[in-house]
Design a protein around this nucleic acid. Structure first.
Lengths: 327, 327
DNA sequence: GTGAAAGCGCTAACAG
DNA sequence: CTGTTAGCGCTTTCAC
C-alpha cells in the first residue's frame, strides 16, 4: 500500500480510504491511485486490514451440511448477496452436532467476522456463552419460534405440519400417516411432524408416525411407504418429512400399483428439483431457502452500515403449499 | 495472548508456540497455559496470526455453485477433511463465469490462503497471471486432460462419454442420442458429449445431439426426451448429460408409455439421490465427488506439512459405470 | 525448552 | 479532502 501511495504521490491513508470509501477521495487522487494499483498489481492484505480494524469482511455461515439442497440454496443465495458488498463467506458444517457447532463458532470468532450465521435455534450452552461475550451479530436461520440469540430468519415448522394436515383434510383424507427419517437429529422435521399430529388431533384424527433410523433419502421413502401399508393398510393420506421421502413413496406406489392420489394422497416438503416433474407431480410445501439467504444477507449488510436496530429481529419468510396432482 | 502468558507465568512466545506446536512445549508450561486459556476464555485472533506469519489457515474454494449436488459433495468432503487440520473454508461461487472467478481469485489472494481450489481447467488469462505471481498452491478439481495451473484432482470427462457409448453398444444399441443442457456454459458436459460422439463415430455410428438452452433440470429432461422422439423416432439409446436430465427422460417415457430399457436404453451421469430408487433404476456413471474433495484436501494438508513435491501433480479419481435396469 | 525484540500491512482518529 | 501518528495481536528468528 505504501508503494501504491508513493507511485500515486499521495499518503498511504489516502490509498486506504480510496479502497474502503472511494467516494471520499478526490477524482484526481482516485485516478492516480487506480493507476498505481493496476501498475503494481497491488493485492490488499485482508488480514492486516482486519487486524487494524478489529473486524473482518468475512461472514461465517454454519449449516448442518451443504449436501442438503435446502442449505445449499440458502448458502448460495447468501454468498451471492454478500459478494456484492465484497463480503466473504467462511463455511462450516455442523453435521447436526451441537459440539461440532460449538467448535466451529469458536474458530469463527477468531476471524472477527462481520456476522455469524447459525442454522436453527438450538445451540449448546457454551455456544450461547461464547456468542454472548462478543459483539459479533448473530443470525439464526431456518427456524422460528424459540429463544433467539440474535436475529432470526426462517419460518415456523409446526405451521408447515398444520398446513399439510389441513390440506389433506380438505382432500377428504382421514387416515393420515407421517413418514419421517432420523428425526432425533433433524429437529425441524420433528417440528413439522408435531404440527401435523397436533392439527390432526385437534380435528379428532390420530396420526400414525412411521420412521426410519437412516437419514432421509429416496430409498428410505420407498421403504417407509411399504412399511406404512403393512402397518396401516387403511392409510389414505401421507405427509413426508421431505420430498426425497415423498419421491421414494411415489416410486413405491408405482411399483405396487397404488393409485396416487385416488387411493393415497401424498404431500411432501421442499419442492426439490424433481417435485414438479415426477409422476404424478408432487404436492409439496416450499420453504423459501433463497429468501432466507437473501434476508439474512440483507440484515448483515444493514448491520454493517450501522443499523444496529434489528438486534433480536424476527423475519418470517413463510412457505407455500403447492397443490399438484399427488393429492 | 499476553494476558494468557501472564497468568500462566510464561512469555507470550511460549503461548504462541503452545498454540501452534503443543508438543514443543514442556508439560508443566502446557498445563498452566491450558488453564489460563480456559480461565480467560481466550480466543486467538487469526488475523493477527496470519499477518505475522504472512499466510493464513484458510483455504479458498471456488466452485460454479454449491446448488449443484456434485460440487456440494466435494465442498462438503473437503471441509470435513480440512477441519481436522483446523483449516477453514472460504467459499466462492463462480456461476460458470470466468470474470467472476477472476474477481474471486483476487479476493481469495487477499486472505493469503494456504491453498486455492478452482473448478475445472479453463480460466481467464488474468486469473492465470494472478496465480502465477503468488506462491499460493493451486488445485484444480473435477477435470483432467488440459494444461494445469497447479495440481489437478478429477477425471477425464471424455472418457465418461466413451464409457457411456461402449455401454450402449454392448446393449446392442445403435441409434444413439445425447441429451444436453446449456453446454456452452458447462464445458465438462460438453466434453462428455464429445467423448460419446467420438467413440460412436469410431464405431461407425453417428450420434444425434438434442440440446436445451435452459440449465439442466428434470423438466428439461422430459422436454428433451419428447424432442428426441419427434426428431429421431428410431432412437434406441440415450446418454444424458446428467441424472436430472435422465430422470426427466424416464418420467416422460413413463407418460408416453415407452418401455425402458426395451424400447429405449437410458444412461445418465451423476448417480444422484434418486438414481438407484427410480423406476426403472437408472444406469449411470458415478463421478467420485467425495473422493475429489478428500484427495484435494490431502494435497493441501501435505503441502502445508512441507511436501512441496506435488506441484503439478495429477490425480485421476476415475468414475464407475453403474449398470442398472434402465439399460 | 523458553524469552526478547522487531515487525507483518493496514486502519482510524485527528488535525489541518 | 489529505496526511500524521500510533498501534491492532500475533509470529519468528535468534540467543540463552
Amino acid at each position: 500500500m505504501t508503494d501504491v501511495a508513493q507511485l500515486a504521490d499521495v499518503s498511504p491513508s489516502t490509498v486506504s480510504l480510496y479502497l474502503r470509501k472511494p467516494e471520499a477521495v478526490s477524482p484526481a487522487a482516485s485516478q492516480s491511485i487506480a493507476y498505481a494499483i493496476e501498475k503494481l498489481n497491488y493485492v490488499p492484505n485482508f488480514m492486516a486490514g482486519g487486524l487494524a480494524a478489529a473486524s473482518s469482511r468475512a461472514v461465517s455461515i454454519l449449516v448442518p451440511s451443504v449436501r442438503n439442497a435446502f442449505f445449499a440454496e440458502t448458502v448460495s443465495a447468501m454468498q451471492a448477496a454478500l459478494r456484492k458488498e465484497r463480503l466473504q463467506v467462511i463455511l462450516g458444517h455442523t453435521e447436526y452436532d451441537e459440539r461440532e457447532e460449538e467448535d466451529l463458532v469458536r474458530m469463527a470468532l477468531s476471524w472477527a467476522p462481520a456476522a455469524i450465521v447459525l442454522t436453527g435455534l438450538s445451540h449448546s450452552a457454551v455456544t450461547r456463552r461464547l456468542l454472548a461475550r462478543t459483539s459479533v451479530p448473530v443470525i439464526e436461520i431456518w427456524e422460528l419460534g424459540g429463544p433467539q440469540i440474535g436475529a432470526a430468519v426462517g419460518f415456523h415448522h409446526d405451521q408447515v405440519g398444520i398446513a399439510a394436515a389441513e390440506h389433506l383434510f380438505k382432500q377428504g383424507r382421514r387416515n393420515l400417516v407421517f413418514l419421517g427419517a432420523r428425526m432425533h437429529e433433524d429437529r425441524r422435521a420433528k417440528m413439522r411432524c408435531d404440527g401435523f399430529v397436533a392439527c390432526a388431533r385437534a380435528a379428532g384424527v390420530e396420526v400414525e408416525i412411521v420412521e426410519h433410523a437412516a437419514p432421509a433419502s429416496v430409498e428410505v421413502g420407498s421403504t417407509l411407504l411399504q412399511e406404512t401399508l403393512r402397518l396401516h393398510p387403511q392409510t389414505d393420506g401421507i405427509f413426508c418429512s421431505n420430498d426425497h421421502i415423498a419421491l421414494g413413496a411415489l416410486f413405491a406406489c408405482e411399483r405396487l400399483h397404488i393409485a396416487v392420489p385416488k387411493q393415497l394422497a401424498v404431500i411432501g416438503f421442499g419442492d426439490l428439483s424433481f417435485s414438479a416433474a415426477c409422476n404424478p407431480p408432487l404436492t409439496t410445501i416450499r420453504p423459501s431457502g433463497d429468501l432466507i439467504g437473501c434476508e439474512a444477507a440483507r440484515l448483515i449488510i444493514e448491520n454493517l452500515a450501522g443499523n444496529r436496530s434489528q438486534d433480536k429481529l424476527t423475519i418470517d419468510t413463510r412457505f407455500t403449499v403447492l397443490h399438484r396432482r399427488s393429492s
